[in-house]
């Protein structure tokens, strides 16, 4: 089965992300799962490519989790990469989902970490509601219909 979000879920996640951006003075943030799918994002412009940030972020975090396992740690709960101008902070929301925060060095990593905690807790609440709904409410059958085109992709 697919993991699905409806309008209401996305609005809730967006509100949490907007609040996090204001409080932490970060530039952009996104929620993605370990497969690299973007669930919601705020402030990440097309130039930064949310899909790519999500794919790489999920890869980095998964790799760090394996490193933790090799070191006998239960898990590394967060990853922080510091650049000269921009930095990135990645932390787990739950077992399947990650929060990625991008900020310039005018903001402080301490502030990002401080507000990421309550934000991830709020997101967990939203995602638990989604999980509960998926177990109890079936997807309407008429929702998905394939387009008639013979090939999905054609040469330019």
């Amino acid at each position: 089965m697919a993991f699905s979000l409806v309008q209401n879920d996305v609005e809730k996640l967006d509100r949490i992300l907007q609040e996090l951006l204001v409080q932490s003075e970060a530039n952009g943030c996104l929620v993605c799962d370990y497969s690299g799918y973007v669930l919601a994002q705020q402030g990440v412009d097309a130039q930064q490519d949310p899909l790519l940030i999500s794919a790489l972020g999920a890869g980095v975090f998964s790799a760090s989790r394996e490193l933790a396992r090799l070191l006998g740690e239960d898990k590394f709960s967060a990853v922080f990469h510091q650049g000269e101008r921009k930095s990135i902070f990645i932390c787990a929301v739950n077992l399947d989902v990650l929060l990625v925060v991008i900020f310039t060095n005018d903001a402080s990593v301490g502030l990002v970490k401080l507000y990421a905690g309550p934000a991830t807790a709020a997101m967990r609440g939203v995602l638990e509601e989604v999980r509960h709904r998926e177990l109890t409410v079936p997807v309407p059958e008429h929702t998905f219909v394939l387009n008639d085109a013979e090939n999905v992709f054609t040469k330019r």
Binding site: A2, S4, L5, V6, Q7, Y37
Partner: peptide
């Protein structure tokens, strides 16, 4: 596992 976003009318699939 695929992902459906009904808000943005988007389906994401991984190959």
């Amino acid at each position: 596992m695929s992902f459906i976003n009904y808000a943005t009318r988007e389906i994401q699939l991984k190959i």
